Computed example of a mutant assay.
Amino acid sequence: MTTVDVYVTHGGESQFSLHNGLFGPATTVFHRLADLIRRGEIRGTCDGASAAGEVPGTVLRQLLVGVGEEARSYQPVDEQSLLATIIDEYVYNVEAIEF
């Protein structure tokens, strides 16, 4: 079975993480992050099994929009609480891993 983990840090400190199986919020964020990196909209690296990038707070918000809704049948995600922790002026390190 596939597992996807997403880790968000700022200044070396963990902010939050998302985890799910094949489908769910972490998978959505993984694909959104990889798309931004491939299009050159953010700096980072990606391959078939991982993506990692430096993401401004405003972009991180975009990555998370809607993940609370799709989490209903997976691990619950309080999207509003996640969005409330993001500071637009910060740059976050986002790492997504599929294994």
Rank of each mutant, 00 (worst) to 15 (best):
D5N: 13
V8L: 05
T28D: 05
R72M: 11
G66V: 12
G40K: 13
P56L: 01
L83W: 10
E79Y: 04
I86M: 00
I37G: 06
H10K: 14
V8H: 02
H19T: 11
T45F: 12
F99R: 11
L36R: 08
A52E: 15
L83E: 08
S50N: 09
E89R: 15
S14Y: 04
R38Q: 14
A84Q: 12
G68Q: 08
L22Y: 09
A84K: 15
G21T: 09
E89V: 13
A34M: 06
S50I: 00
T3I: 14
H31L: 14
S50R: 15
A71E: 04
L18V: 12
T58N: 04
I37F: 04
E54W: 04
F99T: 11
V4F: 03
Y90E: 11
V6I: 14
R32N: 03
F30D: 03
I97H: 12
V4E: 02
S50A: 14
G24T: 03
G40C: 09
E98T: 06
N93R: 15
V6T: 04
T2N: 09
G12D: 08
M1R: 14
G44Y: 08
Q75A: 13
V67C: 03
G68M: 06
S81W: 06
E41P: 00
Y74F: 11
V4Y: 06
F99H: 13
A52I: 08
G21F: 05
V65A: 07
M1C: 05
I42E: 01
G21N: 10
N20I: 09
A34H: 02
T45I: 14
R61D: 01
T3P: 00
E69L: 07
F99K: 06
E79W: 09
V55N: 05
L33I: 07
G12F: 07
L33Y: 00
L83G: 09
I37E: 12
Q75S: 09
